[in-house]
Design a protein around this nucleic acid. Structure first.
Lengths: 216, 216
DNA sequence: CCTACCGATCGGTAGG
DNA sequence: CCTACCGATCGGTAGG
């Protein structure tokens, strides 16, 4: 989430106090603008797709000129990477701490599902960008990301459950794992803020459905 | 699946017999080229995304010049529409005939799932384009498509099951329906031709998993 | 009128 | 952050 261009950030270089209200040349601290830019990118990429979003779109969104974006980034891809990297690492950290914790495998799987659902819903735009546009990252950058971790964490939990005898073992753990992941990740396609179902109860239900669907 | 430009197709106008092997100016009947173009578009759109695919890419793929594509289409979007329209209508026809058939709701739901999985796997590229790039269709064209039919068919079956008492009715049918759809549709993201699991057994397993996951 | 393209250029946008 | 631009490539169309 750090600004890749701001190698040496000098904090708060005496923000101009001159115009308290909006002026045409209003100055915003660099960090604030950077966060604003990332939020705008998440929103617009999620809506239109990365490839269909021009830097002009983003510049308009935050009220600067297109060329000025290069004060914050080196390329359009920087924005995609920052979003995708941030959302992935956050999600993995969540799941890893649960999956490696105590308790039987099925209980940990339930916790992983509810936690993942809440995280996904709380970060709908970023998740959408991750699930839709990661292919537009360069191979080099994509290789720095632990993209398969989600799949591995879930599949491993299912294998533990099979070893414990709580999960049916007549089916490949990977098939089950991808089914679970699909059910959960699909949420980004239909859930909208303000939906009658809360993220918490949605997660609880899907966890329940999975457990009764795969138990031995 | 018809060629929008070929208003009056004259069948097989004495295809040149001169060069039986490949010649530089090899002639292919119009319909054949059109199908070849659609197949190439499905393949390349699925791999690179609609927006990242140039008409030059497609022309290269089938071995003609970019400008020559306009003999077959009026715009790039024609190709997207044709693919998305074809795969959607085929899939809906499948499911509708099953959903409206006889038997109890849960049995029909199982059949819908297995049929849909096989159809999806048999048409992986087209399904990928449909699930990823439909947003790039113009509003006018998108509105001609029955995009919500899948969701409605599955949700309605679940409601019938709830009415019959075979499906748990303490949960919104839509939540269950989207869960089922997500699990099944997610297949396009990980299944590859040659995978050890056959489409048939994959469908059977997912149907099983759903039924035991949601039964009353 | 057709099939199967070519060479050149259109309005517009890309990243830099 | 702005002004003033570039090289290239985009989808699409011209006449032959």
């Amino acid at each position: 989430m750090s600004n890749p261009r701001a190698k040496h950030i000098v904090r708060d270089e005496a923000r101009s106090e001159a115009s308290p209200a909006k002026s045409k040349t209003e100055k915003k601290p660099r960090d604030e603008r950077w966060r604003e830019l990332l939020k705008a990118a998440a929103r617009v990429f999620a809506k239109k797709g990365y490839k269909s979003t021009s830097l002009q779109d983003l510049a308009d969104e935050i009220g600067i000129l297109k060329g000025s974006l290069y004060y914050y980034i080196d390329s359009k891809e920087d924005l995609l990477y920052e979003l995708v990297h941030g959302i992935l690492d956050g999600g993995i950290a969540n799941l890893r701490s649960i999956a490696l914790g105590g308790g039987d495998a099925l209980t940990r799987l339930e916790a992983v599902i509810t936690t993942h659902v809440e995280y996904l819903v709380d970060n709908l735009a970023e998740t959408t960008v991750f699930l839709h546009d990661i292919k537009h990252l360069s191979k080099e950058r994509r290789e720095t990301l632990a993209i398969d971790e989600y799949e591995q964490i879930i599949t491993r939990l299912i294998e533990e459950g099979q070893a414990e005898g709580t999960v049916r073992d007549d089916i490949d753990s990977r098939l089950i794992g991808m089914g679970v992941l699909g059910m959960v990740n699909w949420i980004y396609r239909w859930y909208r803020p303000g939906d009658t179902v809360t993220p918490r109860s949605l997660g609880t239900f899907y966890a329940e459905m999975v457990v009764s669907g795969i138990h031995a």
